[in-house]
Amino acid sequence: MSCERCINVVDAKMIGKEIEGKVIKINVLSFLGDIDKDTGLIVSEESGAKGSFIKDHILVVKRFRGSTVGTYIIYSLYKKGIAPKAIIMGKPDPVVLAGAVLCKIPIVYNIPDGILEHIETGSYIKITSTSNGISICIC
């Protein structure tokens, strides 16, 4: 697949291998309460992505909120085989980071808001490490 444009993000961090896949863009998210832990369906209106299943998708999350039980929910989704493919965020959230590390879900953080704005639900993106950050390609 050819990618129409790539953006270099200096100082962004990535844990995991190269990532590529289809995006679900989320305005605000708590893994506890905003996602049905048995199906992986987003149930919160405020998320802006109600009705989407997170399985096999890259979650691009503008802001996290709320419960510290989120780490357990990520673990539970992973064990059921319905966890997201990767999670992309601005400021790293310790609750989500812990779940991702535990379940080896690739994670990208320190992405400025202005760049998150360019990524939309349904986009297909590729993310790779660079010497001083990451490169996000929208394909």
Partner: peptide, 9 residues
């Protein structure tokens, strides 16, 4: 304290 995930605590 950081806002730790339940598992991390």
């Amino acid at each position: 304290t950081n806002r730790e995930g339940g598992i991390v605590a």
